[in-house]
Each structure stands twice: as structure tokens, then as C-alpha cells.
């Protein structure tokens, strides 16, 4: 298994949490994994990028044109980080409507699930439901159970499952 994933969003949208869920899931599936993420000033609402490399890689960065999967929590980041994707990449965008892209209104799904901050997991659910990730939805659900504090778990899982549902 070799898969290079970028997660692009704005500081505060849960890019770091999503990075961690993907890394934990890859390890649980028995894959080598290395990631990197954005800390510091950019976390205050600026454009942030995480990379996840699943497979026998050494360094965490992905070169432009290399990523097989892109998860965009903010549609405005497409022209910012879209160049990391390879031509045949699966790009999934959190948007109300976005012609020419595979999009899902993850913000709305999360709000309906009662946890507006879980749009990141709704987007993950959608990507898992579409089958574009290195593992299936079950593994991600187990990882979310393992990594989420009890008081958020139910609503976070609801957002994740709403994403899966939307992909059907």
C-alpha cells in the first residue's frame, strides 16, 4: 500500500485532528505512516496543510503533483494547495455546491449531527464512503472511537456516519 494524502483547510477547522485519525488508522491497519502538519501563527485562521504518507516512505513532505488524495475542508484552498494533487487524484471538497468537483456540504452534515466542529469527520466519512482512502470506513470508525473524548464521541460519530451516508 502506498498512498499520499493532503488535508487542506483553515486554522481551527480540525485539520490536525483529521491528520491524527488518518495516522492512527494507518498504523492500526499495519502500514508504515509518516505525516506532517502546520503549527504556530497559521493556526489562527490561516491556510494550513497536512500531509499523510502511507507506505514505505521516509520523509513526511509531498511534492507538487504527487498526492493521490486531497481532502479540502475549505473550497478557497483549492487554488492554494490543489497543485499537490496528481492529475488522476481523488479530490473531495467541503462545499455547498462546486461544479466540476466531488463535493459534500460537510459543515451542514456536522451541524445536523449536533457538532458543528465535526465537519472534518463528516468529510472523512464521505471520503471513506467513496472508497478513495487506504482503508474502509470501519477502521476509521474504530480509530475515532479510540481517539475521541467520551463527551464528543456520539456526535462525532454521527457526523462521520452522515458523511458515509452522503457518499452512497
Amino acid at each position: 500500500m502506498r498512498q499520499r494524502i493532503i488535508i487542506s483547510g483553515r486554522g481551527g477547522q480540525g485539520v490536525l485532528t483529521l491528520t491524527r485519525v488518518l495516522a492512527e488508522a494507518a498504523m492500526a491497519a499495519g502500514h508504515e505512516v509518516i505525516t506532517t502538519e502546520t503549527h504556530g501563527m497559521a493556526q489562527r485562521g490561516g491556510a494550513v496543510l497536512s500531509t499523510i504518507k502511507v507506505g514505505p516512505f521516509h520523509g513526511p513532505l509531498i511534492a507538487p503533483g504527487e498526492a493521490e488524495v486531497g481532502l479540502f475542508l475549505h473550497a478557497d484552498n483549492l487554488p492554494v494547495h490543489g497543485h499537490y494533487l496528481r492529475p488522476a487524484a481523488a479530490a473531495i471538497v467541503n462545499a455547498v455546491n462546486l461544479a466540476g468537483h466531488d463535493f459534500v456540504d460537510a459543515d451542514r452534515l456536522a451541524a445536523l449531527a449536533g457538532e458543528s466542529r465535526a465537519a472534518n469527520l463528516a468529510l472523512l466519512g464521505y471520503a471513506a464512503g467513496k472508497g478513495v482512502l487506504f482503508a474502509g470506513a470501519d477502521l476509521f470508525e474504530q480509530t475515532i472511537r479510540k481517539t475521541t473524548p467520551a463527551k464528543y464521541l456520539e456526535r462525532n460519530l454521527a457526523a462521520f456516519r452522515a458523511g458515509i451516508e452522503a457518499a452512497r
Binding site: E66, H74, P79
Partner: peptide, 9 residues
């Protein structure tokens, strides 16, 4: 690789 990226927010 394709085009020059825009600066982000």
C-alpha cells in the same frame, strides 16, 4: 507540476 499556487488565507 501544474500552475503557480495562490497564497492562502
Amino acid at each position: 507540476a501544474g500552475g503557480s499556487p495562490e497564497p492562502g488565507a
